[in-house]
């Protein structure tokens, strides 16, 4: 058959492209996970925060949360340390740090981890790390097991314990609907002192590093969230030690899923090997049983064989003795008969 030159070149071209496409399809995939490129985050400059709680008010409004007991303008609430609740996705706390004349204020909310513990432990996949960087929650599949609350190292998710029907887990969403539309999160927009900056995580890291470099007396040389728990999309820089403002520094850098992936990997190995192990033990114990059964039978047979042969020997001996006795009697009788014949002859 003859092919046209065009067709031939077409085939070679397709084979060439096919080989590259084929190669990537068969490639083993990446083993180093860096998160979605271009995902967004928020940089919280703690040294700028004045504790006005405008962010709390904005968050409450934007997310349609219930009206709180005390107004957002009431700063007496800062006298107590608060955590996020089912009615408050974010709180600002005041810290009186030794050596500092002024109190330090810090905003607390979901840190939107690169590898969220909540998503790792949710057995219905209610939590999702989105490409925008926001960690979202789907209340429609949530069973209410509250494992996410156990898992979160930052103690963020809260629960609607007082609802009887369909209680939800409540936490900051990074205003996912708003940022998907190109808007700013409510808190970032409301902050009057630019303590919150929204942008791409990689850009925020550079901004933070630049600020620390430019003002080394103003900042601790560490960006909280750069590596903690494998990295978070909410980043913090501070003028005081993070542990002085309620931020744990002992969490380590291991991403949450890696804490359980090792043990999880053992599950299919158990499923694969246990049947072999158990059936092997069963076979061995069955064999031991049948061997001991066999040994019992052999022993019984040996004894009965011995008994049989002894019996046969005894019978043979008895017969011999009987024959001997019979022959003796016959001889005696013959001798008797001969003697009486001799007597008669005389």
């Amino acid at each position: 058959m003859s092919i046209s030159r065009r067709k031939f070149l077409g085939w070679i071209g397709a084979a060439g492209i096919g080989s590259t496409v084929g190669k990537s399809a068969l490639a083993s995939g990446n083993k180093h996970f860096e998160g979605y490129p271009g995902s967004f985050g928020v940089l919280h400059d703690i040294s700028r925060c004045v504790g006005c709680r405008s962010c709390e008010a904005a968050c409450n409004k934007v997310n349609d949360l219930p009206v709180p007991d005390k107004a957002f303008t009431d700063i007496s609430v800062l006298d107590e340390k608060r955590r996020t609740t089912s009615k408050a996705y974010t709180v600002v706390n005041r810290y009186d740090v030794a050596g500092k004349k002024e109190p330090v204020f810090r905003k607390n909310q979901c840190n939107h981890c690169l590898e969220p513990a909540c998503a790792s432990v949710c057995f219905v996949r209610a939590f999702k790390k989105t490409p925008t960087g926001a960690v979202t929650y789907d209340p429609n599949v949530c069973v209410g097991c509250r494992y996410c609350m156990i898992a979160c190292p930052f103690e963020i998710p809260a629960y609607e314990y007082n609802k009887a029907l369909e209680p939800r887990v409540m936490k900051c969403t990074m205003c996912y609907p708003r940022i998907s539309k190109g808007q700013l999160p409510g808190c970032v927009e409301a902050c009057p002192v630019e303590a919150l900056t929204f942008g791409k995580r990689e850009d925020l890291l550079m901004i933070a590093r630049e600020r620390i470099r430019k003002y080394p007396d103003r900042y601790i040389n560490h960006i909280y969230g750069e590596t903690e728990m494998g990295g978070t999309n909410w980043l913090y820089i501070s003028g005081v030690a993070f542990s002085d403002i309620g931020m744990r520094e002992d969490l380590g850098v291991t991403p949450a899923p890696e804490l359980t992936s090792g043990a999880l990997a053992a599950v299919p190995v158990v499923a694969g090997l246990w049947p072999v192990l158990l059936m092997g033990i069963y076979a061995i114990s069955k064999r031991k049983e049948s061997i001991s059964q066999q040994e019992i039978e052999d022993a019984v047979r040996a004894v009965s064989d011995k008994a049989d042969s002894e019996l046969a020997q005894a019978l043979a001996k008895a017969r011999k003795e009987q024959e001997a006795a019979v022959r003796k009697e016959v001889r005696k009788a013959l001798e008797e008969a001969a003697r009486s014949r001799d007597k008669e002859d005389i």
């Binding site: 998503a119 790792s120 432990v121 949710c122 057995f123 219905v124 996949r125 209610a126 599949v141 949530c142 069973v143 209410g144 097991c145 509250r146 494992y147 629960y159 609607e160 369909e166 209680p167 899923p257 359980t260 992936s261 043990a263 999880l264 599950v267």
Partner: peptide
């Protein structure tokens, strides 16, 4: 009694959050 929405207890078998040990337990 314990989970917030008990009638959704079968949900793990539908949505299968397989990275969770709770899925394994369920």
């Amino acid at each position: 009694y314990d989970v917030g929405i008990p009638w959704r207890l079968p949900y793990p078998f539908i949505y299968q959050g397989t990275t969770s040990f709770l899925f394994e337990v369920a």
